[in-house]
Design a protein around this nucleic acid. Structure first.
Lengths: 196, 196, 196, 196
DNA sequence: CGATAAACGAGACGGTACGTCTGGTCTTGTG
DNA sequence: CACAAGACCAGACGTACCGTCTCGTTTATCG
């Protein structure tokens, strides 16, 4: 018995990142045009080795992206919940406005054809972030900033919705101005109504 | 000079709809797996004829979908603006919950790799609907139902955002319950604050 | 009824000659790569017009070649038959060593696939020349230079054979040296044996 | 590394022979109409496999013809040189009068457009036969049958010339009568002049 | 410590589709 | 009504990848 070669794994992931334009050098294809053959060639690895360990090229892309590239957009526990949420949203928007956004968009695109890709996307991207935001919203409720009847799931999900919409459908840049528009639309209904 | 053959056009569009699962018979592939070769074969048409009139398979799909299939989700002018909006949202959600939604999702997916697909999507799907909703929102403002400082563009866009999110990212069914959640989240911030 | 357009005919023949590299300008394709479409385009003529008057592209080539290009290699009646034959052979060899030879070779090549092309070749190239040579051989017999039991048909044909062999199979240049080799091999057996 | 599949090679060569009409079954196209796609289909082989190992369809044809089909027309060392030559010529003429001749003619035809085809023809058909005939002529000289000043190259080449002429230009059948005509024309000049 | 079994590179293989090209036919409108 | 313009069907072209497979070759354990 021989253990899986960590060297090969790294080579494959590195080649993949380079090929989709996230590495040092800059070939820069799309996920659609990325081929297993190209990864194998650039990684100096046999096609069979890739097929042995990943079920599809998208799986390699997700693996590469998550394990070696993804930067987290943490939430500042020192800020009040509404400000922390605003900061988080701006950070996410900025992240999705860069090359990373394009890859995420392409992964979601591939997910339209492969349910397990979408599942992977949820497990490795979405769930963590949604949970963090849910907790933040709960904190806001606890702090008396947000209304008590808030449906955390729906709220957390809908705050992100316009970001993904713009990422996937376009219609304008993912920049700070957009983040501000988003916040000015989505924050008010979260707030506790002013006592009257 | 010889005019374009309407017969061929119909055959191509019909074959395309059938192949992606929207026709009478039910082959039912995805847009990704759909091939020009298959369309040509089923339409009894030469590949060259397709390439002559459409730049890509996605262009054929959009054309087929819009011109022969798309059902409009009209807005009832007799209802008050808020009720009309609610009815419209429920209608759109229901539409996207069906086979049509899958095709829209796949078109958007292809759009991640071809900017002009996304542009086509905007021109032939989005713009009309966004305009209609904008007008509806304006009517709501005029009727005194919605707040006067409403940014119509942003509002119209963000109302749709959760629908596309669920369509593309999953996370639950596109059904009436979802429509209600969406409305209960998105409608309140539109309303004119009750005079205090 | 409108008469056949001589203007079109000339344009088609001119375009064809140019395309196979015998015209003023020098595109220079082979007969194989020559297409009716290209002829039509360059002649400013519809494809249908060509198909109406010629059965195939090779027919156009033969027509163009024979009617507007072919140079005759006449036989000098002032010379003794053996010298006249030698001059004629040198002239033919020189002609076949040029661009014309390549076209003849290509016409013969096409003739392997179309019997009527070969027939045309005989009728419009070969028969005249063979007859002329036969007459020359007869003259040689009459003049007492050539043996009386000469089979004129066979002799005429076999004198040309090495020329076509070299034209079609290669093996060396079609130049004066070759003509001399040919003559020194083929002339002696024609001659009347020296009385012994 | 995996070795080349002899099975595939055989299938391709067999399919090719059948398609050009030399196999058991009898489709019988010409080399011109023969397509790589048809070979691949009939051989149950991928097009890529053919392209991997042969540069063109004519290369496949030559390979198939030479390696699996070509019959040698040996020279009988027991006969005197002139009789052996006559036997050889009759044998070659008979061979070229059959289906094999048609294929050879078509290969030469293709050679007009591809120099390397002609080169292959020389290397794999011509050179051997020419050498054998040269040796035979030499033997004839040694035996005192043929003249001592014979240019072996030219003589060997010119003996074949009328055969190729009739093969390629037609003008009559390649039968024994033709072989006899050829011999009665080409043999005498080879012979040593009778001492006078 | 030598056998053995997995992991690996290399790449051949049967397939499928690509987008381009040509052939030959047919249609329409113009001079 | 001959013609140009060119749309059309048919299908081959050569290329690129797919995913599977068989090769040796190379380790790393285990008997």
């Amino acid at each position: 018995m021989v253990a899986r070669s960590e060297e090969s794994r790294q080579a494959i992931i590195g080649a993949t990142l380079t090929l989709i334009g996230l590495g040092e050098d800059k070939p820069g294809t799309t996920v659609q045009r990325l081929t297993i053959e190209a990864i194998a060639k650039r990684a100096g690895v046999s096609k069979a080795t890739i097929y042995r360990w990943w079920p599809s090229k998208v799986a390699v892309v997700i693996d590469a992206f998550v394990s070696d590239y993804l930067q987290h957009t943490p939430i500042d526990p020192a800020l009040p919940a509404d400000d922390a949420l605003a900061a988080h949203v701006r950070s996410v928007v900025r992240q999705y406005g860069s090359d990373e956004g394009m890859i995420v968009a392409q992964i979601i695109a591939e997910g339209q054809y492969a349910p397990d890709v979408l599942r992977q996307f949820h497990e490795r991207f979405w769930d963590d972030r949604a949970r963090v935001v849910r907790e933040l919203l709960q904190r806001g409720v606890d702090e008396g900033l947000f209304r008590e009847d808030l449906n955390l799931d729906i709220a957390a999900s809908f705050i992100y919705a316009p970001i993904y919409q713009r990422l996937l459908l376009g219609g304008g840049p993912l920049d700070d101005a957009f983040a501000d528009d988003l916040l000015s639309f989505a924050l008010p209904p979260l707030r506790k109504p002013i006592a009257r």
